[in-house]
Nucleic acid binder design. Structure first.
Lengths: 344, 344
DNA sequence: ATTACTTAGTTAAATGGTTGACCAATGAAG
DNA sequence: CTTCATTGGTCAACCATTTAACTAAGTAAT
């Protein structure tokens, strides 16, 4: 009794009406008397019928599916910053409210977009900077609603949601400067043009300049964004002679590895070294010492992306194309005045 | 020039063949001469054609989509343990290898399965224990390949991937016992029958029993699984008079909150209190002190789930239905012999 | 009584592919 | 010269739905 899927036809037969009527009942379209409506609903219930999305999609040229597109790391591996979970979470939650579903797609540099083109996706959210302009172009050819996140493409036609990264870099640096630090290492991930790190780096420079502190390129460490990267950077940073008294890590994940690394070297935070992170994920709050960091609301970022997407889907042109979310310095225990150091 | 989607017909026309031939070229089916093949491929390239997944799905009654189904917290919110990211990551990576795509679905208690039933999903991965047996039953009616993860349903017909949670509870507890601790708090999430915590709790009891240490129900704290939950538990645990010298937290996330809470109370880990976590996520390694924990390979768990799913999809009955992954104690700095405490 | 409008429903085309059945042409074997 | 197989390709049915166009019947207006 491998009964195949119940179709609208079966329902029609049982309810003794045409399939068009069943369709009308389901969608609340057309004209149906209350009587037939009930008959049909009864039949649907009895047969436990669910309309086929494929058939409907084919007709409507849509799918109620949106894709979150994340660039892959090497070897087809997805980004491993668990921070992404919060992003995806925000997206899924908002999408669910809009009766959309989220499909997660990792995409590599060589990978083709075939999948994305074959599905009739209702929308695309690109996360992060795609170096390949080719990617962007082939996407635009698809004529599908898109939102670019954290990818600072200079084109006001694009829907984009980003963070005020420059300001984030600025306030984090300024905080350290105001505590008297001057030799501040910037521990950043890849400084891709149009990427978030690049902007934060600019904020860092602006703060230095404003404070009259010379910018030293040798204090900018470009490391992979991982806790291990932070951990490893500790020895370079902690080395005598550098005179470094503070570090601004552009990810909490990195900052946490760094603190651990310094700790293992016997360098105390914040007594010997002040640390500022970026993101304010949960780890920052529960870290010892609690991490001073530049907060962004990543869940909100995801929600905003969905909002920009649905605006496009519904052709609501009243919605702004570019949203820049704010940042906020969250002072905690990982930073201290330089003076404290002099005392010891 | 809002050119509508290019279809197989357009390609056929351009290549001067029938649509059947185009389809054959695309799928490598039927018989096509090298010459026509080239002609068709040329046309496909020229028109930038991508076959419609909806149409294909309709015919094939499949979608190349699998769903990861996660039970929602209150108010439609997704689980917020970033640990889920690694799970999803493992699933996505493996699915990609199998040319499947992953759709993330949060499902609430009242929520209907309509979406899941409407899409012709190729497979379903259920994460966590669903209390509702109704859910499970309605899933089975769908006749779709399913894998249950961390949901210890006692039915050997089901494909399940789980962890040796009982052993995890056992080795974590045993580790503390072997260090001389006897009053060991078990800091657990909800103790749902068939849930992972329940099994770990059993392992905890077995270890106590084996060591001849009486089981005290008042040492089992059932708290929400969050860092904040752990943080808050600190004051109860640290209270004088209890004589508690060690805590086994069934999630690193909770353990980290706990350590912070204890730290804020001036209780030092491991000198005053030994802590064991569970999961071994990255936070455990970079926490101060580094967290002794029971390791599970969550990415592997995700990969295994996909393997069990594809086995079902491909009707490969040689694959085992139940996979139980191993656990491993990772001793770090958050645990110390009880003797150390006596000394101070 | 004719016309016109509603109401409730049906019919059939269309969506974009896949696929088994069929066919024509060629060559080989008997 | 038939018979048969092989090659290369076409035809048309089918998948499950939506929807525009149509019909049939009843009612209201002229």
């Amino acid at each position: 009794m491998s009964r195949s899927r119940v179709t609208i036809k079966d329902v029609a037969k049982l309810a003794e009406v045409s399939i068009a009527t069943v369709s009308n009942v389901i969608n609340g379209t057309g004209r149906v008397s209350l009587d037939t409506q009930r008959k049909v609903e009864q039949a649907i219930g009895e047969l436990d019928f669910a309309p086929s999305a494929s058939a409907r999609n084919l007709k409507d040229k849509k799918s109620s599916l949106i894709a979150v597109i994340v660039p892959l790391l090497e070897k087809g591996r997805l980004q491993d910053n668990p921070f992404y979970w919060h992003l995806v979470r925000g997206i899924e939650e908002s999408a669910r409210d809009e009766k959309l579903h989220v499909i997660l797609v990792g995409i590599g540099p060589d990978e083709s977009f075939s999948f994305i083109r074959e599905q009739h996706l209702d929308g695309l959210i690109f996360v992060g900077a795609f170096e390949d302009t080719e990617v962007v172009e082939s996407v635009l050819r698809l004529n599908v609603p898109c939102v670019f996140m954290d990818s600072l493409i200079d084109n006001s036609d694009f829907y984009q949601v980003s963070l005020d990264d420059e300001l984030g870099g600025y306030i984090g640096t300024k905080h350290l400067l105001s505590l008297g630090h001057e030799r501040i290492v910037l521990l950043t991930g890849l400084l891709k043009k149009d990427g978030v790190n690049y902007c934060r780096w600019q904020g860092y420079r602006r703060a230095l300049e404003e404070a009259g502190v010379p910018y030293r390129p040798e204090l900018v460490y470009e490391e992979p964004t991982s806790s291990l990267g932070g951990y490893r950077a500790a020895s370079r940073i902690g080395a005598k002679g550098g005179g470094v008294t503070a570090v601004f890590a552009l990810s909490d994940m990195v900052a946490i590895g760094l603190i651990k690394g310094l700790h293992d070297l016997g360098i105390q935070v914040p007594r010997d070294m002040s640390i500022v992170g970026f993101d304010d994920d949960e780890r920052a709050r529960y870290c010892i010492p609690a991490l001073t960091t530049v907060r962004q609301d990543i869940v909100q970022k995801g929600r905003t992306a969905v909002r920009l997407l649905t605006a496009q889907i519904e052709r609501d042109h009243s919605v702004e194309r570019q949203v820049t979310l704010g940042v906020e310095l969250v002072p905690r225990q990982s930073t201290a005045p330089l003076a404290a150091r002099v005392k010891d």
